[in-house]
């Protein structure tokens, strides 16, 4: 049994401990493999741009590599890495806001929908799904940033309230109310979009 196979059977926390203690690059690679897709999905839904989300996840992984010792074992590794990715995504949105204020044209609408669906679906259904996804993503981008983050973590990523509270640094009550408000906003937006 190779080292990589052995490590693959361990939990996230055990793998990062191996990386912290022995600087085992294989351990790092395993964690990258485990989290690259969920993080990309989360960041993409949050910022709405595939290339940007890929860059953010790369930066997240580099930060993780450089600051591995700042992870403390009492926290879940997933919440730690999601916090880093979330903060980087928020920074990107701030930067984008500044750029939007400075530029005359807002081309945000051009950046929607770059979906990769590897499953085979008939062209008609695929087009329909693509359109649905596009509408939902558009609506999601119009939801307030503070609500959007928690709604994505809960409904897209399927995380528990406790995990979301840990990632965002909010209380569980605040998380619940923000999710509720976010969903309400999204519902209103989707209704309006449908009317159009």
């Amino acid at each position: 049994m190779t080292l990589k196979n052995k490590l693959a059977e361990l939990t996230d926390e055990e793998v990062i401990k191996e990386f912290q203690d022995n600087n085992t690059i294989e351990a790092y690679e395993i964690l990258v493999k485990r989290f690259k897709d969920p993080l990309t999905n989360f960041v993409y839904r949050f910022v709405g741009d595939k290339d940007v989300s890929t860059d953010i996840v790369q930066d997240t992984m580099i930060k993780f590599y450089l600051n591995k010792d700042s992870y403390k074992s009492f926290a879940k590794f997933s919440t730690w890495i999601y916090t880093i990715a979330g903060n980087l995504a928020k920074n990107e949105l701030k930067r984008r806001k500044r750029r939007t204020v400075l530029s005359i044209h807002n081309n945000d609408d051009d950046n929607f929908l770059q979906i990769e669906d590897k499953k085979f679906i008939s062209p008609d259904r695929a087009a329909d799904n693509e359109m649905k996804a596009s509408i939902i993503q558009k609506a999601l981008m119009k939801v307030k940033e503070v609500y959007r983050e928690v709604v994505i973590l809960r409904d897209v990523q399927g995380m528990s309230y406790e995990e979301i509270a840990e990632i965002t640094g909010l209380s569980i009550g605040t998380v619940k109310s923000r999710i509720n408000r976010g969903r309400n906003q999204l519902q209103k937006l989707l209704k309006n979009i449908y009317k159009e």
């Binding site: 690679e29 839904r45 890929t54 580099i62 979906i115 999601l140 399927g158 999204l186």
Partner: peptide, 30 residues
């Protein structure tokens, strides 16, 4: 879009966006 529980469902059903194929290669090169 009128039912709140369906919002959770449609968000959950959104296609999963994955990292590009060369993600790890680029990362390790960096």
């Amino acid at each position: 879009y009128n039912n709140k529980s369906s919002i959770e469902k449609i968000l959950g059903d959104l296609p999963k966006i994955g990292a590009p194929d060369n993600f790890e290669l680029n990362l390790m090169t960096k």
